[in-house]
C-alpha cells in the first residue's frame, strides 16, 4: 500500500529538525551511537503520535520533547540524583575575570577551544544541560523551553540562569588549568 501523502509531508517536515535532535541527543547521551539510537526511536515515536501534533505549532519543540522524554525514561534510575543539582552559587565569569585583572575579559573567550566549550556543556548535570541546549544552542524562547521540559516558565528561566553560571565556572576552571588565566595574588584589597 502506498504511503499517504500527509504522512510523507509530516515526515519530511520532521526531518528538517534532524540536526537539532541529533545534536541534542549527542549532548545528552555523550555518545554518537546512543545518540543515533535515541534519535531514531524519537522519530518512530513521533510518527506514531503524529495525530497529537497540532499543525502550525512548534514542531521542533514537540520533537525535542519526545526525544528528551525518551532520554529521561532510560535514565529513570539516576533521575533523583540528577535532580539534586550541584549549586556553584553565584558565579559570574565576567566579574571573576575583571577582579583578577584579565583585560579585556572577552580575550579569554577567544582562547577557549571549541572542544572545551562542548566538554563544559557535557559536564553539566542533564537537567542543566538540556536547558542550555534549548536556550543557548537552539534559541528556544523561555516559553518553548518550558513547554519542552514540562516545567513552568520561571523554572526554565532559573534553571537556565544556574546552568549558565555552572558553565562559566567550569570554563573558568579550565582557563585556570590551561594557563589562559592566572589566579594572581594582586587582587585589589578594599581600603579599610
Amino acid at each position: 500500500m502506498a504511503e499517504s501523502p500527509p504522512q510523507t509531508a509530516f515526515a519530511e517536515e520532521a526531518l528538517t529538525h534532524l540536526d537539532t535532535l541529533y545534536r541534542g541527543a549527542l549532548r545528552l547521551t555523550r555518545d554518537p551511537d546512543s545518540a543515533q539510537d535515541l534519535v531514531q526511536e524519537a522519530y518512530l515515536r513521533a510518527l506514531r503520535y503524529q495525530h497529537s501534533y497540532q499543525p502550525g505549532t512548534n514542531m521542533k519543540a514537540w520533537l525535542f520533547a519526545i526525544m528528551r522524554n525518551l532520554f529521561w525514561d532510560r535514565f529513570k534510575g539516576s533521575r533523583k540524583e540528577d535532580v539534586s543539582l550541584d549549586d556553584v552559587g553565584e558565579f559570574v565569569l565576567y566579574d571573576k575575570l575583571r577582579d583578577e585583572g584579565a583585560k579585556p575579559e572577552a580575550d579569554v573567550l577567544d582562547k577557549l577551544a571549541a572542544s572545551e566549550v562542548v566538554a563544559a556543556v557535557e559536564k553539566l548535570p542533564p537537567l542543566h544541560r538540556e536547558v542550555v541546549l534549548l536556550g543557548d544552542v537552539e534559541g528556544f524562547s523561555y516559553r518553548d523551553a518550558a513547554q519542552t521540559l514540562g516545567v513552568p516558565i520561571r523554572t526554565a528561566m532559573s534553571r537556565l540562569h544556574r546552568a549558565r553560571q555552572q558553565l562559566q565556572k567550569s570554563l573558568y576552571d579550565y582557563a585556570l588549568e590551561s594557563g589562559i588565566v592566572r589566579a594572581n595574588g594582586t587582587k585589589e584589597v578594599p581600603n579599610e
Binding site: 541529533y22 549532548r27 571549541a114 566549550v117 556543556v121 541546549l133 543557548d136 558553565l167
Partner: peptide, 9 residues
Amino acid sequence: LVKVCCEQD
C-alpha cells in the same frame, strides 16, 4: 560561543 561550538555537530 556556546551556540557556535555546539552547532558544529
